[in-house]
Amino acid sequence: MRPELTDWRSRGDYFDHDGHRIFYIREGSGPTLLLVHGYPFNSFDWHRIWPELTAHYDVIAPDMLGMGFSDKPIRHHYSVLEHADMHQALLSSLGVSETLLLAHDLGVSVAQELLARQLEGAPGPHLDAVVLLNGGLFYETYRPRLAQKLLCSPLGHVAGPLMTSPIITAAVREMFGPDTKPTDDEMKPLLEVLYYNHGRFVSHLVGRFVGERQTYRDRWVDALVRTKVPLRLINGPLDPNSGAHMVVRYRELVPAPDVVSLPGIGHWPQLEDPAGVTEATLTFLRSVNSG
């Protein structure tokens, strides 16, 4: 394993959720900030903004089931609802009753489900503020790439194990801005995390959350529209999947939309423009705390 991944894993811990080992890393001090990563990688997606966040917050970042260093059961029905359950269970096990939240990609759907539960008055840690990065907030506006469509199709069980490093690298680079694409060396830890513990055999199963975005579209959009939790959207507008077109829809539906666009950035703002994401996140969270 590459040294940076060995270091990341060594700083974390595991907890049991429904018989599965879930990896998480927790560092820093201050108000709690939960980080919810995207698909198909893991909490290491946050490593470029981690030092600045942990300088101000008690930061908790788990790997969702089927990804990263968490268990990757092959015969399992992966679900956004289960991912939301896991995050709530982790916070409760750590004695956290309220938290700030930063989410990306698949993580924005988890955030929407948590906001929906809070609106319903369901038990669980309270969300005090939410920052959303690029992700499929609105199913009708979401534009999944060809590789993702293939993995989510009935042919996913065949295509998933055949996804070689060059194919995945090309698909990932397509999502970045033209001047921020990852180098081969930067892709290596991302690919190693994806393949860790036979990950290539479950990635297509995890990726079927796209269907849930259609199933729960009204519930998750209603959560954004009706919530009283302060929201900020930080968006890489050049993301072909959920870039500027997603911001247009966000402004149409979300009352008093708070949006920060990062010029020249694509789908992974926290990797492409860590300084911009950090500044926009900390400025917003500080304004919420001071208010």
Rank of each mutant, 00 (worst) to 15 (best):
P182Q: 09
D16G: 12
V59H: 00
R286S: 15
T278W: 12
V108R: 03
G38R: 06
L132K: 01
V59R: 01
E4C: 13
Y250C: 10
H157N: 13
F23I: 08
D58K: 03
V36M: 15
Y195N: 10
R173N: 14
G30S: 09
H76Q: 12
P263W: 11
I168Q: 15
P31M: 07
L133I: 09
V131T: 02
L35E: 05
R226H: 15
V108K: 01
E279T: 14
Q118M: 11
R226F: 05
F15Y: 15
G207C: 11
P178E: 11
S165Y: 14
P73R: 06
M67R: 08
I49W: 04
G264R: 01
N235M: 06
A111E: 00
H267E: 00
V248P: 04
F201T: 14
S261I: 08
I22R: 07
V254A: 08
G156C: 10
A111I: 05
E212N: 02
T180I: 07
L35P: 02
Y39D: 14
F284P: 00
I167T: 12
V80D: 00
S92W: 04
F15Q: 09
L102F: 05
L81E: 09
P257S: 05
T54G: 04
V254P: 01
Q148F: 14
N134P: 08
I265H: 11
L5P: 05
A256W: 08
H245A: 03
E98T: 12
I167H: 09
P230R: 02
F23N: 00
T180W: 02
G243T: 01
P62H: 01
L137Q: 08
D45G: 15
Y78L: 07
L94A: 05
L253P: 03
L150R: 13
F209C: 02
V158F: 15
